[in-house]
Amino acid sequence: MKEDLNPFLPLSPATLHILLSLAGEELHGYGIMQEVQRQSEGKYKLGPGTLYDNLQKLIERRLVEELGRRPEDEDPRRRYYRLSPLGRGVLSAEIARLDDVVREGKLRLQTKPRRA
């Protein structure tokens, strides 16, 4: 049975960027911050307070899974996170929604304004 994803939408900018950064690979917190900065070309900077506040909520809602520490990491204090199947579905639904918004926006902006 397919889960209804509408209650998760729309996503806040911070949540969207975190899910997007985790869509490619498993990352630790610092890696997520760097990936968000790279995706937004430095325009969106995520602080650790905002990051872990959102991660806490995403884990609680089962959109993100915590993988724990990796002893081989250069800093053993780091924990890794990954996107859950539900999170991937929510991200896909959000992208589709944004896609519709973008398409509608482009359509509206290309329409010539009516003359009075």
Binding site: P48, G49, R79
Partner: peptide, 27 residues
Amino acid sequence: EEMLSIFDQAETPIAAAELVLDGVVSL
């Protein structure tokens, strides 16, 4: 621990101060 780990990555005092401010807001 992870937040402290990120703090330890700060390269400049300004970046560290920004993280402190972020921590206060988070608190």
